[in-house]
Design a protein around this nucleic acid. Structure first.
Lengths: 203, 203, 203, 203
DNA sequence: CATGAATGAGGCTTCATTCAT
DNA sequence: GATGAATGAAGCCTCATTCAT
């Protein structure tokens, strides 16, 4: 009964999460039936309940799993990166867009997560986690802007937090656009945009 | 069944759409049961089917209804507006953000629509309508930018379409942020941001 | 409120019955919806209830209407017919089969009536009417056989009632066969059979 | 869903069929609700769908099940039976009538099957199966008649197929008569009739 | 511990019937 | 008297969850 957490158990948990992520991404939360996930994970339906107490918990598990991986992908090396604050902002922008494109076929998931964050019942858990994530991104960007200002690259009047908020939001927005039009060149748009933005905030 | 389209019929259709929008916004598509909508619209369950052939069609009806109203709200006066292209861009930005905030309690709907655009079955209808909407917005913004370039307010090197795409995306992004944090001051962020942006694209 | 029974009313009643018969024959009792009948009869749905208190009553009305017409068609002239009893039996056989084929596209109705006679609720009304009808046929045939015996055309040992029962059943049976295989030549089979039968009962 | 076909599964399938046959026989197809069948079979409503994909499929399953059993009951021993062709015809007649009376309380089913064979949607499946069944009976009877002719017991002029068609139809017809009047002595009528018939076809 | 057959609550939808126009 | 829009009871079916094997 106790979830003993052997390596074997962790592996199967991962295997279930991966399968569930794929199915949820394709069919949405409500469109997914537990049997699909079990089949995709190559386990019995009952087994799922040995790892997650309910469908919703499994979904939240996937959410958490994806968020952690996404954040890791975006943050990798930001701090270790050399260069000016603006260069690091450019790098972060790249990394964020890259991370979005990487998991493009899982992007449906993100939308499902947003939706879950709006439904009564699931709302709180999801909303809180989202807020944390956005907060983290915004703080990181704002810190870079502040650093740029101190370094004299950014003019004083810029509303750092506002720009940060919009920039972070933009990553989601670009993901959405690609979601709707796979041919949309998000990388180019993001690059062109960040240049314009930087020009706008430059001293 | 008889789509005779009397004024009375149109009124009741509207009444149903309004109620359905509210319920869908609150509980999401799957979380909503037809009985809720019927109750909210103060009609019998069966009546709903006299106006929309299925739950999904009703949902799509709401989608269409919201999109049309949203577009109308955003576009109002853009063309009649005087001033330079950049002034009109500022005005459009305001209008778009305003429209988002206006229907803030319906914002959950937008997310549900995105989700629907990702589910097999609903995908095509929703995706197509979304694409049209985004396309329209992007073209409008791009035209303004092009006009500004011709008027000499915007420097030649700017990638108009890319900036347009991002700007349009930003409206979604701001809506999302408000959705997650009702205290977030989207108007201020949008204003601050558009200033920065315009500075970035200025000659 | 009183069903005043003007000629106009009778005509509309007939019009409804005719339409209902057609629809019931095609789709069965349960498969038929009142709206179909109303449409087929070119009247409003509500009007039906001005003539029949319920769907089931309308169905029973159709049943009665068909039975009466069928009996009339079969009996026509039996008594007035000249010839020996056996000749009249042959004529009746012809008439019965002919009546079946006449209303061939309404034959589905007969089956529906049988079915109705088996369902609790409808059972009693239908069963009673059916019994009367069969009884009448059997008595008529038995009387002919008896007459034939008295005339010396039929040998004494024949179990008249049994033969009558079977002969009557045969008309149903032939109808069924045609129902299943429209190419089946019921007339020929009936003629060949009655000859054999008559030879079997002949003195 | 998994059609693994273990003995246990077969047993439960049979259990469901038996219960469904009873309920369908009593209330007809439309009058029967799945809950009734589930209760009669002492299983959950959902279980039914593990064995039959829909109410209609279950009904067809019952149809098939009944037909197979009925045919088996009628054919048993025809071939192994000694005696002349006419003796075997008498035996077959007995067996057929006996089989009808055996399942008398299921006879309502047969009518429901006929009805199903007339409804659009169910039509094709049922009609095809019925045709096969009738065809089989008719061929068997016709073969016996032909054999009798070769043996010199039956006179040459007899239209074998026509007589066969009517004889087969008569079994249904007798079933109907018993259905309407439980006191009707079908066995006696059938015996008396077959004697008359045989006399009619005898050399 | 894994499995998948069994369960039954609950949703979408249909349609006989009513009644205001 | 005729109409057809409105109603809500009722049925088929799905699917999250349990539990015997």
């Amino acid at each position: 009964m106790a979830a003993s957490d052997t390596p074997k158990r962790r592996a199967k948990r991962e295997q279930i999460l991966r399968a569930a992520a794929e199915v949820f991404a394709q069919k949405g939360f409500s469109g997914t039936v537990m049997a699909d996930i079990a089949a995709a994970a190559a386990v019995g339906k009952g087994t799922l309940y040995g790892y997650f107490p309910s469908k919703e918990d499994l979904f939240f598990g996937v959410f958490h799993w994806v968020m952690v991986r996404q954040e890791a992908a975006t943050r990798i090396g930001i701090d270790r990166l050399g260069g000016s604050a603006l260069d690091r902002l450019r790098a972060m922008n790249r990394a964020a867009v890259h991370a979005c494109l990487e998991m493009q076929d899982l992007y449906g998931l993100v939308i499902e997560f947003w939706a879950a964050a709006g439904h009564p019942g699931t709302r709180e858990r999801f909303k809180a986690t989202f807020r944390e994530g956005y907060e983290m991104y915004r703080r990181t960007v704002a810190a870079l802007l502040e650093e740029g200002r101190r370094q004299g690259d950014i003019r004083p009047g810029v509303d750092g937090p506002a720009v940060a908020a919009v920039l972070v939001g933009m990553w989601d927005a670009l993901g959405l656009q690609v979601w709707f039009e796979p041919d949309f060149d998000a990388r180019a748009a993001a690059d062109a945009f960040i240049d314009t933005l930087i020009r706008g905030v430059s001293a």
